[in-house]
Design a binder for these strands. Structure first.
Length: 481
RNA sequence: CUGGGUAUAGCGCAGCUUGGUAGCGCGCUUGAAUGGGGUUCAAGAGGUCGCAGGUUCAAAUCCUGUUACCCAGACCA
């Protein structure tokens, strides 16, 4: 494509180097992922955006089932008294809870709140269901919406209402609960890296950053194109806080009545924001093939000529059982227009079929990640495309990993750190003494936060970067969404 | 919650300073040609100017209030 043409095309999307926020907004609106809704902070997820969510659900739910979990559904509305049972939890969520006060014209005897998360209602039900050690473990997940009345919202990254999954389990021992917490973090890692091609750092949250009411919170953190980190999923070991508050007790083998040990873990439509900001470029979206709503788009060329459309349909029939695909037979758009549109929408593979291809028993393929065009034989087409999609996944993952590595610095010098946060935003791997004071100071000075204490604790120094005291933890620090 | 900005056709905008018939581009509809990287021509449709008051013979335009959204912070997935 000529430079001029490319510039004309790209003018619809603000270049990310110029204004990353605007780039993000342009992309999500112009690719038909979402539309703004009439209520503040709420978004409509349009079919193409929802298709991504369905893809995520598909690959994640499969792993939930494989690890022994079942889906259920709990109510949207929860009585006010439930929220108050766990003090830390209440303190954490109360400021952003949305209240229901009236039924019709009548004021409710007890206010209800719309779930910002479901620990309270689910644990209260578990206390009825759990009687014996034979009832454990309870391994339940739910796919649902939650509402958090946030001050500032951005489509996918932070909306007042969002879709997510929340797993809630109860176990007989702390060891089992810990094992479950780590297992689900690993499931999340697999989804992020093996399905979304989005590399993540795994680790534990500091006390300051952990979930309200958890003993320990583990997280996966991804790096976006603008150098900001995205918390992409969390897994919490809730200890006995909730089982004690909600009275989840079981009679053990030894005849003693004991409190259960619980976990919860969640990922949300925020992952879609992560996909956009991990892989997207100045031409728009780049969809990871394994969750792409459309993996292959067939664009017939000169479709009015005899045999072209027939061949396109024939290819569609041949491929449609193996791939999510679309045949773009719209009459009123030129091929060039269609190319640009599907590239903007990030469809991994475009298949062009025209008179010249038919003559030579070939198709023309285009891969979105590398913007490369080439021809392939009509024979073994399914296999060719399957391999191509795998290669695209790998290439995307490696690019994202390379990007993260380029955006990761190591330092234990606080002045250098402050400069880095301004001049080279990204992760900084450093040492921390473990005190809240140092954590707060860093946030105040730079707006960066400790994203996690990675599992690999090989030291990169022996003194805390902030106070110079004895270092206790290796940490990754970054500004975050 | 703090600071800044915006609201006029589906989308992007002009018009407002200085009140007087509602404009442009894209998109949309119809027809024809075109078709391997955002095609071309012709003819059309479409808006109580965010909402509520006020001033005026007359308000998109001036005044008051209000709501929503966007951006940047602080807070959170």
């Amino acid at each position: 494509m000529s430079k001029k043409k490319q510039q004309e095309f790209v003018k619809e999307i603000t270049p990310m180097e110029e204004d990353f926020s605007q780039w993000y907004t342009d992309v999500i609106l112009k690719t038909d992922l979402v539309d703004y809704a009439p209520v503040k902070g709420c978004m409509v997820i349009k079919p193409y955006g929802y298709g991504i969510w369905e893809g995520i659900q598909r690959v994640m739910d499969r792993r939930f089932k494989e690890t022994g979990h079942k889906n259920a559904y709990f109510p949207l509305l929860i009585p006010e008294s439930y929220l108050k049972k766990e003090a830390d939890h209440f303190e954490g969520f109360a400021p952003e809870v949305l209240w229901v006060t009236h039924g019709g014209n009548e004021k409710l005897a007890e206010r209800l709140f719309i779930r910002p998360t479901s620990e309270t209602i689910i644990c209260s039900m578990y206390s009825k269901w759990v009687q014996s050690y034979r009832d454990l473990p309870v391994l339940i997940n739910q796919w649902c919406n939650v509402v958090r009345w946030e001050k500032t919202t951005r489509p996918f990254l932070r909306t007042a209402e969002f879709l997510w999954q929340e797993g809630h389990t109860v176990h007989a021992t702390p060891e089992e609960a810990q094992e479950e917490t780590m297992q689900m973090l690993e499931v999340y890692r697999q989804v992020a890296e093996d399905e979304l091609a989005m590399p993540v750092l795994l680790g534990q949250k500091s006390d300051k950053e952990k979930f309200a009411g958890a003993d320990r919170t583990y997280t996966m953190e991804a790096m976006m194109h603008d150098g900001k980190a995205l918390q992409a999923g969390t897994s919490h070991n809730l200890g006995q806080h909730f089982s004690k508050m909600f009275d989840i007790k079981y009679l053990d083998k030894d005849g003693e009545l004991k409190f259960g040990w619980s976990t919860s873990w969640g990922t949300s439509t925020r992952l879609i924001g992560g996909i956009i900001m991990t892989h997207g470029d100045n031409r728009g979206l780049v969809m990871p093939p394994r969750v792409a709503p459309t993996q292959v788009v067939i664009v017939p060329i000169a479709s009015h000529k005899e045999g072209v459309l027939d061949k396109a349909y024939e290819i569609k029939k041949q491929l449609q059982n193996d791939f999510r695909l679309e045949l773009d037979n719209r009459e009123n758009y030129s091929p060039g227009w269609k190319f640009n549109e599907w590239e903007m929408k990030g469809v991994p593979v475009r298949l062009e079929i025209g008179p010249k291809d038919i003559e030579q028993n070939q198709v023309t393929l285009f891969r979105r990640d590398k913007l490369e065009k080439f021809t392939a034989s009509m024979d073994n087409l399914n296999e060719t495309i399957a391999n191509l999609l795998d290669d695209i996944h790998m290439t995307m993952f490696n690019n994202a990993l390379k990007n993260r590595e380029e955006k990761t610095s190591i330092t234990t010098d606080y002045e250098e750190f402050k400069t880095l946060m301004v001049e080279k935003p990204g992760f900084v791997k450093t040492m921390w003494c473990g005190s809240r004071a140092c954590e707060d100071k860093m946030k105040e000075d730079t707006n960066a936060t400790i994203r996690c204490m990675p599992f690999d604790q090989t030291p990169v120094g022996d003194k805390c970067m902030m106070c110079g005291g004895e270092a206790k933890h290796v940490v990754y620090v970054a500004k975050a969404y």
